[in-house]
């Protein structure tokens, strides 16, 4: 059904495509600018937080240190175990980068989570993919690692025909893809949800007199969902990093 002209245009995936700031360059768009801004924000924050490191930390230093300690202890040490130290920089970068970019989705005037464009989470997932396979290959060697993935011990031989493709597909395709899709889908759906309520409320406000009274409810739900969205954004950043840590842990673990 086509809506009559002047009717409400529901938000769609077209709202995620931005025209360039200047000229026709595809690289001068809002998501890219947000990515660079996030890098700047993170660098400045941790640089300032670490600059005057003191035994009795300032509030800024304390904030920076607690984020670091959360990733190092909660995600690195407790999950990877033993040999976690060399993966902490990667995990920490991943966590802060995704977190700041997600939260940009509800910061006034920025209001766009860059991770709702599929390219960004895909690249992060591919990085994770390279890191955990490289860690495993470095530790076990290519042949034994592949053998460990492909052949579970203790099952009859002919079952391998059915199970080996599944193992290979899980390790090399499904894991990175689901990792990227989970982050992308959450950010995309969340942003769309907020758009529906805020744009809908705005549309109702300009409608006939009876509809104006409904509009505040739409805005109220929109605001409530903004807080819910904040929760989802933090959670997704955590889950992405958690899964990365789990994959690394699985790659380093000895098969028993």
């Amino acid at each position: 059904m086509n809506v009559a002209s002047g009717g409400f245009q529901p938000p769609s995936s077209a709202d995620f495509v931005f025209s360039p700031f200047i000229g026709q360059s595809a690289y001068l768009t809002k998501p890219i600018a947000l990515i660079f801004l996030s890098v700047l924000v993170i660098s400045v924050f941790f640089f300032v937080a670490a600059r005057k490191a003191a035994i009795v930390p300032s509030r800024l230093q304390f904030a920076g240190e607690s984020v670091y300690a959360f990733v190092r202890n909660g995600l690195g040490r407790d999950i990877i175990g033993q040999d976690f130290a060399r993966f902490v920089p990667f995990l920490f970068t991943l966590f802060t980068f995704i977190l700041v970019n997600n939260i940009f989705g509800i910061v006034p005037f920025l209001q766009f989570p860059a991770m709702s464009r599929f390219g960004f989470p895909l690249v992060l997932a591919l990085l994770t993919f390279v890191v955990f396979h490289a860690a495993a290959i470095k530790k076990k060697g290519f042949g034994p690692y592949l053998k460990e993935i492909m052949f579970m011990p203790g099952i009859p031989k002919f079952v391998y025909v059915i199970l080996t493709p599944l193992e290979l597909m899980t390790f090399f395709i499904t894991r990175p893809v689901t990792l990227a899709v989970r982050l992308f889908a959450n950010m995309f759906a969340g942003h769309l949800l907020l758009l529906v309520f805020i744009l809908g409320g705005d549309h109702l406000l300009h409608g006939v007199i009876g509809l104006k009274f409904i509009s505040p409810f739409a805005f109220a739900v929109g605001i409530a969902l903004t807080f819910f969205e904040f929760l989802v954004q933090v959670l997704q950043a955590y889950i992405f990093t958690l899964l990365t840590a789990l994959y690394i842990a699985g790659a380093l673990a000895d098969e028993h």
Binding site: I80, Q82, T174, L246, A253
Partner: peptide, 18 residues
């Protein structure tokens, strides 16, 4: 770290999808 619990739910979905 090999405690199955933490990662099992996520891996299970991956295996089923595969």
């Amino acid at each position: 770290p090999q405690d199955a619990g933490d990662g099992a739910a996520w891996s299970i979905v991956s295996y089923l999808l595969s």
